[in-house]
Design a protein around this nucleic acid. Structure first.
Lengths: 214, 214
DNA sequence: CATCAATCTGAACGTCATTCAGATTGATGC
DNA sequence: GCATCAATCTGAATGACGTTCAGATTGATG
């Protein structure tokens, strides 16, 4: 598998092949298992070849990360919208966490700021755009201001809304539920049953009632 | 600096010296900058010496991680308690995030499950115990059941409460606020002013009012 | 004082990212 | 059709990494 055959001395589209190879390596072995040499080998090329197409390992991984953000954004974009803001916010958060759980290696990559050139303009754009629908859903739920898509204005509730999903994603990938709780249900059912219950506790349909006793 | 002098062939307490050295390296250069050879050199010892005291790099970092969790737990334990559950939960979350922001390298370490032996019993114990007060504060806020410290029963609101702080911590360390928002206030004031506003939006003093418009 | 186990050294080995001189070739201009 | 040139790729460096191991050193035990 891998190692696309080659007839000529030149590859043809080594750049794309390296991106593809890197993604599948990260899928199979995680970011920690990724090396530039592996990617080169899988693309059927010598270890020095990638340097002509990317600025080192970080340059290649930055491009991969951009694609991951784009895919995350695309998955969040096609999620259904209802007339219940709470449900929509939960849907977005569930989509976010599900993406992380289903693509653990790639999600870890976009969180490894040491492996990525975070100053890259394309990366910045992709990381922002991926969460446009999430942002809108949060704004609708908290109903404080109409979601101005262009502006990146800070709002406490937006940070709070992002933090919940992002924290859950990290917790799952770090295996924290197993550390914090004697999980009655196995890890497989987490996404299907446990996650919705957490999101429901976070953003209930009805505005909160008195939750803490006197 | 570093490189504790040594008169005899044997070190005396190399184990402690390696832990100490590792911690300061991670403080100064982050987990990514840590290498076992650096730690050995800083302890004034050859690269092969650590193997007599730890099971490889992972063994050493696991011990460091345990100490980090213990320190986090100690910092959360001395936080003030009031008669307002919401305030106490916010205080715990603020303590958690502040610890991460003030110890970025060490916090990243305890999240790098690939660098740590997560099956280590001492590690599991430390990671659970560190959050006892956080858990109690969350239980009091949501007021659903009395905090049973021994049991690790799963509750959706507990996972939700942890996720917020954990997500904020990761977001800060990943520099996401700068990616998501045109931060009006510089990153320095985040902990002092921005973080409290986020936590207040998450867990307000009064039970929530109607927040979303029709 | 002899013995032994614990500890430490220093030199391996294999792998990594990166660099670079030289080989190869696609494309351009004639 | 052919010469030229820049882009591309090879393969062998260089230096750092974790880990292993034979041999040196020494504290402790008897």
């Amino acid at each position: 598998m891998g190692a696309t055959e080659r007839d000529s001395y030149h590859h043809g589209d080594l750049r794309a092949a390296l991106i593809e190879a890197s993604e599948s390596i990260i899928r199979e072995e995680g970011v920690e298992g990724f090396t530039l040499r592996k990617a080169a080998k899988r693309a059927g090329v010598s270890p020095g070849a990638p340097s002509h197409h990317f600025k080192g390992t970080k340059g290649l991984l930055t491009v991969v990360a951009i694609r991951v953000f784009q895919r995350l954004g695309a998955e969040l974009a096609i999620l259904p919208v209802s007339d219940v803001p709470a449900r929509d916010l939960r849907t977005q958060a569930e989509g976010y966490v599900t993406f992380a759980a289903q693509n653990p290696g790639l999600f870890r990559l976009i969180c490894r700021v040491d492996l990525i050139d975070c100053q890259d303009q394309e990366f910045r754009e992709a990381s922002f755009s991926a969460l446009v629908h999430y942002r809108n859903a949060a704004a609708a739920y908290f109903g404080e201001d109409p979601p101005d898509r262009a502006a990146r204005i800070f709002r406490p509730y937006l940070a709070s809304a992002f933090a919940t999903a992002h924290g859950l994603a990290h917790m799952i990938l770090e295996g924290r539920p197993a550390l914090l709780f004697d999980t009655p249900d196995p890890a497989e059912t987490f996404i299907e049953t446990t996650l919705p219950s957490i999101l429901l506790a976070t953003w209930p349909d009805r505005p909160c009632e008195v939750r803490h006793s006197a």
